[in-house]
Write a protein that binds this DNA or RNA. Sequence first.
RNA 1: GCACCCUUAGCUCAGCAGGUAGAGCAUCUGACUCUUAAUCAGCAGGUCGCCGGUUCGAAUCCGGCAGGGUGCACCA
Length: 503
Amino acid sequence: MEHHIQDDVNVLIKRRFEEYEELLKKGVQPFKYSFDVNSDSADIIANFKDEEEKREVSVAGRIMTMRRMGKASFAHIQDGRGKIQIYLRQDEIGEEYENFRLYDIGDIIGVEGYVFRTKTGEVSVHARKLTLLTKSLKPLPVPKEVVDENGNKVVFDQFADKELRYRQRYLDLILNPSVRDVFVLRSKIISSMRRFLDQSGILEVETPVLQPIYGGASARPFVTHHNALDIPLYLRIADELYLKRPIVGGFPGVYEISKDFRNEGMDKTHNPEFTMMECYVAYKDYEWMMNFVEEMVGFIVKEVFGTYEFEIEGNMINFKGPWQRISMIEELNRLAETDILKLSDKELIDVVKKFGVEYDGKKSRGKLIDEFFELTVQNKIVQPTFVIDYPVEMSPLAKKHREKAGIVERFEGFVIGREICNAFSELNDPIDQNERFQEQAKAKEMGDDEAQIVDDDFVRALEYGMPPTAGLGIGIDRLVMLLTNQPSIRDVILFPTMKPIKQ
RNA sequence: GCACCCUUAGCUCAGCAGGUAGAGCAUCUGACUCUUAAUCAGCAGGUCGCCGGUUCGAAUCCGGCAGGGUGCACCA
């Protein structure tokens, strides 16, 4: 659909277009090509000293407020690190002051001048030269800020409409500075994780997003079609089956940070595309991996936040290892006062019902134990904790415990009741793996559309022999949510999936 | 997928015993060379999400649709 901004009926937009045309008429190019900056808002404010000589600076940013008083004006511009006030006088910048009458909130300008402190105490830039860099043709929904008598910042007309914030994230980033902070932290968390993995000698690899056979998790996939080959291709739901192949091929350790796609419901903790880190290390088991996760999370937290201990949701959380380790099955047996693995289905149902699990007549044993665990143990976890000893019913992909019957070598890490990782001693017995695939195939025939597809090449790879391997998955979005205190996954994804608006 | 709630000026919101739309800010005109929600004076701005129904009359009541939010279900 063709859209011409000058056809917009809104008076504010019309007005801006008129300003744009008038500037053109006066020979002002409203969209410049570059501008040299030698400072920014945070730098100017941090390094200002009253007694020192006037410091000449060149800064650029978006006009956020304007206070015009005839022949002098104040404005705030916002750059990548904050805001700085600009002071303009007609007698000093002459003709450019006339042009400034055609500038608006939202325009991006370059300012050259010297730093000073105003009568009211604000460090500002006294402009000697003003340059329009980009004319903004749409009005910005700018909030008003004021500091009340108690020193608290009060925001009026905040840009708070969640739909608009997600659909037009660029506005959210301009208008809500805390949003920018979250995405800076997200980037730091990921780069810190990558640094840790690289330093550990684990190789970053890339595996296909488009896959003829999807696998590695129980989930429904997105399907697409390749025209030249005339075949369906699936967007990956997990990296697991591909990442284990290079381990078979001889790499001692591989990892990938990538988007996975699952064609399922959306809510506070689920977006159809999300970022996952998966890591596989040869000759290691889940015990080793627990230590590795402790170190990695500690490393990230220390690097990004400068401390191991900080507050999340009102709790002081200490990420310095070693983390507490608890046995799921021991905790549940203690609560149930019996060995739940030895109970019949009916006995198990009766026990978990006493702890508040609702039974609708069709939950599997694994699901019942999982809910029992969530209600009684998981929700009470505050400090970083590893839960180990999962029943085999709940973990079809993990290797059976070397000693304990009915248990697999698996752990999950929790903080404040929230899962932050999932890891196994990986199943590397091709016969066992093939049997589990065949069971999934049967479930698929029975109508379970989340059952996994048989991947013969993966089984073949295991038949050549995969060394003992520890595997780990960390949902990056959820880790970022936890560490940045964000309530919804949409607050840590720049462009969360949204339904398009029908015309 | 199910339930509940929301959608009024550019922004934030009021108006709902049904009587023909209102505030603050932003915009526009004018004044103002240290302001900071700048101030002062004046002007203007709306198919009340969309479609239909009830009614003499609907922003307001009813139904449907669209988009969004929250909770539940599904799912790591």
